[in-house]
Simulated scan of single mutants.
Amino acid sequence: MYFQHPVSLENLETKKIILVHGEGFGAWCWYKTLSLLEEVGLIPIALDLKGSGIDLTDPNSVTTLENYSKPLTDYLHSLPDDEKVILVGHSFGGASVSYALECYPKKISKAVFLSATMVLDGQKPFDVFSDKLSSAEVFLKESQFLVYGNGRDKPPTGLMFDKQQIKGLYFNQSPSKDIALAAVSMRPIPLAPIMEKLSLTPENYGTAKRFFIQTLDDHMLSPDVQEKLVRDNPPHGIYKIKGSDHCPFFSRPQALNKILLEIAQLP
């Protein structure tokens, strides 16, 4: 039986936790995390980025990180000036979180990168995965995962892994029910935002408290790559989830919840 530690919500800077999904996913992937955070009195909000989840945009038409992240930046823009949120970005959702930090640093109390692309200024999110997927040039020439939304004679517009690859890369420790949910819910990944260089400045991006959660049985973003990310771009805190694949919201939801509560309660 799992017993929830008592949570002190008295002096929190914010109770709002915005959950930003990774590539191919949508708000749906956070269903366990949403209920666990709500049970202790926090206010989790899961967003669909452009062309993801139940957002009706064609993923092939999403050609910039700005456009892809618009549901997140629109949400932050609409917040009252005196209100802050905690952002949690999974996988490629880390790029949207970094972009949001650059745009709205004063509205973000903490940023959590969950096995995510925590890139440096001038880096492409794709660079983080490139150990796995070879260089961008080679990948774009050879990849059998590419989607050509504008026709074969035009540059590729998206990525789509097949079911067996997704299972091996993302869900090597996840319950079969969640793998089945993902199989019917995942959508093609807009390619252009992954290939875009981020522009991040010390006076905006650099002012936020960043935390990184490492997943130690991850086949998509290997523990070595995650180590390199935190070495190159040191966050304020590092947490580790043992036995977690790339998707701890499926494979280790209680462990993830415990860490998010701890980060929320940090001064």
Results as ranks from 00 to 15, higher is better:
64 T>A: 13
110 K>N: 01
141 K>C: 10
105 P>T: 01
166 I>D: 14
126 F>V: 13
29 C>S: 15
165 Q>S: 15
69 S>T: 14
98 S>A: 14
5 H>K: 11
43 I>M: 01
74 D>F: 00
230 V>K: 06
119 V>G: 03
192 A>F: 12
99 Y>Q: 06
65 L>G: 11
93 G>R: 01
64 T>N: 10
131 D>N: 02
200 L>Q: 11
80 P>F: 03
247 C>W: 05
138 V>D: 07
192 A>P: 04
206 G>P: 03
197 K>D: 08
253 P>M: 02
99 Y>S: 00
208 A>I: 15
15 K>F: 07
152 R>C: 06
199 S>N: 13
51 G>E: 10
117 T>M: 13
20 V>W: 01
147 V>A: 03
259 I>M: 07
152 R>T: 13
184 V>C: 02
10 E>Y: 00
182 A>H: 02
238 I>W: 01
233 N>T: 02
263 I>T: 11
143 S>W: 04
9 L>T: 13
7 V>Y: 03
111 A>W: 12
171 F>W: 14
46 A>E: 13
48 D>K: 04
31 Y>H: 15
162 D>V: 07
82 D>R: 08
265 Q>W: 00
10 E>R: 10
168 G>W: 07
238 I>D: 01
55 D>I: 04
263 I>Y: 05
152 R>H: 11
212 F>D: 04
142 E>H: 02
17 I>Y: 05
11 N>R: 06
102 E>L: 06
63 T>P: 00
39 E>N: 12
92 F>S: 09
141 K>G: 08
22 G>I: 12
178 D>C: 14
